[in-house]
């Protein structure tokens, strides 16, 4: 439904995107993650038809964004990062205008705008000027706008920014419902814990390139070998011996937790049994010895640290 092939975008000599490819199927939510300046917004702007790619191809529902831009734009709803509407326009008036702009005849536009306002909890704000809305309600107007024409694909740039926790949960539920209705959803975010329970797959961008892609489980599996090791001695007094033995076996101390656990770097995986044996030989009783299951934020950091290294 949403397809990008070897997308390259340069601003002058600066590459914002450098050969990124991905696809989003109907009913799928792809999380586009990356630090600021990674190229997330640029990719979304290309897919929305706002910017052309320098090289590569982007298509929505089979329509190329460059050669069939109008049809591609008719197949996608786009919520830009800083969604804005004319400040003097009332919510209902704006949604009606946008529905007509997307080709609906006025009576249908009126009905669709009212339905969208109801769906996104904007019924009571119908007559309120956009300029007086809170950030959360502005985002709702943006999402309602993106969905007015019931497009099969949705592009959302940082949809959670500025939302309070309750609004975030509501927003996530809306996105889940939309995915269940078969929409292909691509959204960018750097609020990683917020997207962990939402996405079907993630694509991590770094310096305009795809650093990793896959489901959360796939990424966890891939990074298990480089994930930190948590070791909890039975007696706090053994922490010193633990640190010394870990160091002798090639593990570096990352931090000590308040419960007495020691967090070691991944170190040489082959040395882990030897470390365990050495600890036993020294009489250090161990309550926990395991690799930390990296969450999305840790995966993100591990990948970026790995890239930087």
């Amino acid at each position: 439904m949403i397809r990008a092939e070897q997308l390259v975008k340069r601003f002058g000599a600066v590459p914002a995107l450098d050969g990124v490819s991905f696809a989003v199927a109907p009913g799928e939510i792809l999380g586009f993650l990356g630090p600021n300046g990674a190229g997330k917004s640029t990719a979304l702007r290309i897919l929305s038809g706002w910017l052309p790619p320098t090289r590569g191809r982007a298509a929505i529902a089979g329509h190329d964004l460059v050669t069939a831009s109008l049809r591609a734009r008719a197949s996608v709803g786009y919520l830009p990062e800083n969604f804005a509407a004319p400040t003097e326009m009332r919510v209902g008036e704006y949604l009606r205008y946008r529905a007509e702009l997307k080709g609906m005849p006025p009576p249908a536009a009126r009905a669709r705008a009212a339905a969208a306002a109801q769906e996104f909890g904007l019924g009571e704000r119908w007559r309120q000027p956009f300029g007086t809305l809170s950030k959360g309600f502005r985002q709702r107007v943006g999402l309602a706008d993106a969905l007015l024409a019931d497009p099969p694909a949705l592009l959302l740039d940082e949809p959670f920014s500025g939302l309070d926790p309750i609004q975030r949960q509501e927003f996530k539920q809306i996105l889940r419902d939309l995915a269940r209705r078969g929409k292909a959803i691509l959204f960018s975010s750097h609020v990683l814990p917020e997207v962990q329970d939402l996405v079907s797959r993630v694509l991590i961008l770094h310096q305009g390139r795809a650093a990793a892609a896959g489901t959360l489980a796939e990424l966890q599996q891939r990074l298990r070998a480089s994930a930190p090791l948590r070791v909890l001695p039975a007696a706090p007094a053994d922490a010193e011996a633990l640190r010394a033995l870990a160091s002798a076996h090639g593990f570096a101390l990352l931090r000590e937790d308040p419960d007495g656990a020691v967090l070691l770097n991944a170190g040489p995986v082959a040395n882990r049994p030897a470390l365990l044996r050495a600890l036993a030989a020294r009489g250090v009783e161990i309550l926990e010895f395991h690799t930390l299951q990296p969450d999305l934020e840790q995966i993100f950091l591990l990948l970026l640290q790995g890239r930087a290294a």
Binding site: R45, S48, R73, Y78, R98, L101, G142, A149
Partner: peptide, 8 residues
């Protein structure tokens, strides 16, 4: 940006 990414 919102205006010109609409199908118009």
């Amino acid at each position: 940006e919102t205006l010109l990414t609409a199908p118009v």
